[in-house]
């Protein structure tokens, strides 16, 4: 499995008590498989992405990325594993205002220590594949919502990740654009052979995934197979 969450639990302080965000969640996603996770607000969807993306550590349980157990890794090792093996697509794209589309993508190579023309060439290739060949030098303020999200997908693909995580990637888009972005994610995941988790509240978008799961009050359950 490319992504494996084993008995993962997370709780946060809530007054005198603790509120459970994830309760003993098990999740396994294979190479090239796209899993859609739906659920109401507060069901733990974003927490699941944060745990799977090594952005926060679980209170208990284990997380494995590309056969590497990340649970007990040191901070620096976790950062490196996330950078090299995980691509994350955020809600509302989350681009850096000062960078052009090409730079948004190339910065991933820069952070990985691959400086120079290679990073820019790879970024250009990815953006061209996303249909943004004419928008390479545009900054986020000059891009439409759909274009911004496609830049974000290109950025997530920059390091050929083994795991792709997308947190409500279509939430800020109109239905048609949302469809296109979702299809793009599914196609790229299959092409790359990456284990992909897409958090969405849209049942139509979720139906494009290979498997659907639902989070309810921190517990996960299978909805339907495609």
């Amino acid at each position: 499995m490319s992504l494996h969450l084993d008995n993962v639990s997370v709780a946060v302080p809530d007054g005198a008590d603790r509120r459970v965000l994830l309760a003993a969640v098990d999740l396994a996603v294979g190479p090239g498989e796209v899993v859609a996770i739906t659920g109401a607000s507060g069901s733990g969807k974003s927490t699941l992405v944060a745990i799977a993306g090594l952005l926060r550590a679980p209170d208990s349980g284990r997380v494995r990325i590309a056969d590497v157990d990340a649970t007990d890794l040191k901070d620096r090792q976790r950062v490196r594993l996330r950078r090299d093996r995980v691509g994350i697509v955020y809600q509302a794209a989350n681009l850096l205002p000062a960078l052009t589309a090409r730079e948004q993508v190339a910065i991933v190579a820069h952070l990985s220590g691959r400086k120079g023309a290679d990073g820019a060439a790879r970024a250009t290739e990815l953006l061209t594949r996303m249909g943004l060949a004419g928008r390479l030098d545009a900054r986020p303020a000059e891009l439409s919502g759909g274009e911004r999200q496609r830049v974000a997908i290109a950025r997530a693909l920059m390091n050929d990740p083994r795991v792709i995580l997308a947190d409500e990637p279509t939430a800020a888009l109109d239905p048609e654009l949302g469809e296109q972005v979702m299809q793009l994610l599914v196609d790229e995941s299959h092409r790359l052979g990456a284990a992909t988790v897409v958090v969405t509240h849209d049942p139509d978008h979720a139906s494009r995934a290979d498997r659907r799961l639902q989070l309810h009050r921190g517990t996960i359950g299978e909805v339907a197979a495609r």
Binding site: S43, I88, A92
Partner: peptide, 11 residues
Amino acid sequence: VDPALALRAAD
């Protein structure tokens, strides 16, 4: 700065 802030506030 917590990198998890890159995601929206945890739901």
